[in-house]
Amino acid sequence: MKQAGGILGFALAVPLAGPAEALAARTQVAAGPGSVTLRLNGQPTTLTLEPRTTLLDALREHLDLTGTKKGCDHGQCGACTVHVDGRRTLACLTLAVAAQGKEITTIEGLATGSELHPMQAAFLKHDGFQCGYCTPGQIMSAVACVKEGHASTDDQCREWMSGNLCRCGAYPNILAAVREVASQSAKG
């Protein structure tokens, strides 16, 4: 009985330091606001941010780039998709400080002047949106999908775009837009 009590006491004891505490002790993140320089749509931008500020909040609340949407804020809907160094990234799960020194492209940075990006034009042509809330994230993900070579079939495109949700159900039109741009890219 004494032996069982000793084992139970050991099992219920508070651990000295778990993996999270050990990582925090090694990382030593600054406690207050600091300077963060982001290369955003080809332009360097310096902000003073708390270390825990997400890239999404930096874009929307500090830079007034509201094209990137806050949907679920948990990385489940894809409304906040941006490109970081050419790869699709969920801005709600990315700390702004982690994006320093990397090229960030938002929906506002896709067009060249008044000329829409081919994916933006295809979304308009195929009516690839209804309420429009998910559209910026859908377009950013679609551009990456084509660039990555993951849009050669309908099924492949659906699979690689599955992280972007549309509550209105405009999926057939989104698929048509993505496939059109993919076929144009394959030709030229």
Rank of each mutant, 00 (worst) to 15 (best):
R158G: 00
G109N: 04
V14C: 01
G9T: 09
Y171A: 05
G109M: 07
L55N: 06
G109A: 04
Q28R: 14
C168Y: 04
L63C: 04
R87L: 12
S185Y: 06
V36S: 04
A91R: 03
V29F: 08
H74T: 15
A20E: 15
G18M: 09
R179L: 09
A151E: 10
T112V: 09
K125C: 03
H150N: 15
C92T: 02
G86W: 08
I104H: 01
G163A: 07
T135M: 07
A170W: 02
V82A: 03
P19T: 13
R60I: 08
I139Y: 04
D64F: 01
M140Q: 05
L49S: 09
C92E: 02
D85F: 01
G75Y: 11
N164P: 05
G149D: 07
K2L: 14
D73E: 15
L95A: 05
L124S: 09
R39H: 15
P51W: 12
I7T: 13
E180C: 00
C77M: 13
I139D: 04
A4H: 09
A186K: 13
S114V: 01
Q184E: 15
L16D: 14
L47E: 11
E180I: 06
Q43D: 14
L16M: 08
F10M: 13
A122R: 06
V36D: 05
G128E: 03
I7F: 15
T153H: 03
T66L: 03
L12P: 00
E148D: 15
G101R: 06
R52W: 13
T53M: 14
L47H: 02
E148Y: 07
G169V: 05
F123V: 03
E108W: 10
G109P: 08
R88I: 12
S141K: 04
S183C: 00
K2M: 12
N164T: 09
S185T: 14
P51S: 10
K69R: 14
D155S: 03
T105W: 00
A142W: 09
Q100P: 06
E115V: 14
A121V: 10
Q130P: 10
A30E: 15
A186M: 06
R39C: 09
A121Y: 04
A99E: 10
Q156V: 02
V143Y: 05
K102E: 08
G71T: 12
A170I: 04
R88G: 00
S114D: 15
Q184F: 01
T94H: 00
E180P: 08
P19Q: 12
P44C: 10
T112N: 11
T153I: 05
T46Y: 03
P33M: 07
A25L: 15
Q76R: 10
T48W: 03
D73T: 10
A79G: 04
G18Y: 11
T48Q: 12
I139N: 07
T112H: 10
E180F: 06
K69E: 06
R60T: 07
T135L: 01
Q76C: 12
T53N: 09
A122F: 10
G18Q: 12
N173W: 00
Y171H: 13
R88S: 04
C92G: 01
L59K: 02
C77S: 12
H126L: 04
A96M: 10
P19G: 03
C134I: 11
G163M: 08
D154H: 04
T135D: 01
C77N: 14
G109T: 07
P33L: 05
H117T: 13
D155Y: 00
T89H: 00
Q130W: 02
K102C: 11
P15S: 08
T112I: 06
A11L: 15
